[in-house]
Amino acid sequence: MRITATAASHLGRGAGPADDEARRIAAVLSEAVPVTAIDDFLGAQWTKLVVNMVNAVPAIVGRALGEVVADRGLLAVMTASMRECVRAGIAHDVRFAPLNGLDDAGLRRFARMPLSLGSRLPRSLVRRMGWEHNLGSTQQSIRRGQETEIDFLNGAVVREASAAGLEAPVNRALVDLVHEVERVGFLPDERVRAIPTH
């Protein structure tokens, strides 16, 4: 895998404070790579899941993130997948932890926005993180001929939404399309643009 962005690694326990064991494990791991024990690990996991919604669309069409967010139709699909993720988290009473410039208040506002306004979030995230040329980890897996993590990213949104009595049709479609790409190769942009995002 090619690392195109650096970020700290975190660990913790559930929604509570980091305990002594979490701090001990973080110290051991930090001998190899920097790891920090954090409070409210669950909230950080959910925010990271929102961030990871940038992976599916580039993986389906075989394009870099910068190209995807520059395309209105592809950006709309990415935005809708992020919004489903945030709404699922809210339905589970998650408090989103600050990560990659995102936070609880901002994500809650995003969940209520019309799609056209909400599209600013993934576009600004890609620009702020310097990910314009980033292919995303899902696409990198496809290019290496490896199974992707899509069932644990967009698939997790589908499962968590269902558990909360919600639907996540955009994420369900993205999971199916990524599995199709795993089988047959990259798909035309039009296949993704055809996903209903309302």
Rank of each mutant, 00 (worst) to 15 (best):
M1D: 13
T6K: 13
L11K: 13
G12F: 11
G12L: 10
G12W: 10
A15V: 08
D20C: 08
R23K: 15
R24K: 12
A27W: 00
A27H: 06
A27E: 13
V28Q: 14
S30V: 15
S30A: 05
P34N: 02
A37V: 00
A37Y: 01
A37R: 01
D39L: 09
D39V: 12
F41M: 11
F41N: 11
L42W: 08
G43T: 09
Q45S: 15
T47L: 10
T47C: 10
V51A: 11
V51D: 14
N52F: 01
N52G: 08
V54D: 02
V54I: 15
N55C: 07
A56E: 08
V57D: 12
P58D: 09
G62V: 00
G62L: 04
R63S: 07
R63H: 07
R63Q: 07
R63G: 10
G66Y: 07
E67L: 08
E67H: 07
V68L: 12
V69P: 01
V69T: 10
V69D: 13
V69W: 08
V69S: 10
R72D: 14
G73D: 12
G73L: 09
L75D: 06
V77P: 01
T79F: 04
T79A: 00
A80N: 05
A80R: 01
M82L: 09
M82D: 10
E84P: 08
E84Y: 10
E84C: 11
V86W: 11
A88Q: 00
I90P: 03
H92F: 08
V94A: 01
R95V: 09
F96Y: 10
A97W: 11
N100K: 13
G101R: 07
D103S: 05
D104L: 01
L107C: 02
A111K: 04
A111H: 06
P114E: 13
P114C: 04
S116H: 14
R123V: 11
L125R: 05
V126D: 04
M129N: 08
G130M: 04
H133P: 00
N134G: 10
L135F: 09
S141I: 07
R143T: 03
Q146Y: 03
I150V: 15
R159I: 10
A161R: 07
A163E: 06
A163Y: 08
A164E: 08
G165H: 06
E167C: 06
A168Q: 00
R172A: 09
R172F: 04
A173P: 03
A173L: 05
V175G: 04
D176Y: 04
L177T: 03
V178R: 05
V178Y: 06
V178S: 08
E180R: 04
E180G: 07
E180W: 02
V181Q: 01
E182T: 05
R183D: 15
V184H: 06
G185N: 02
F186K: 02
F186N: 04
D189N: 03
R191P: 12
H198T: 15
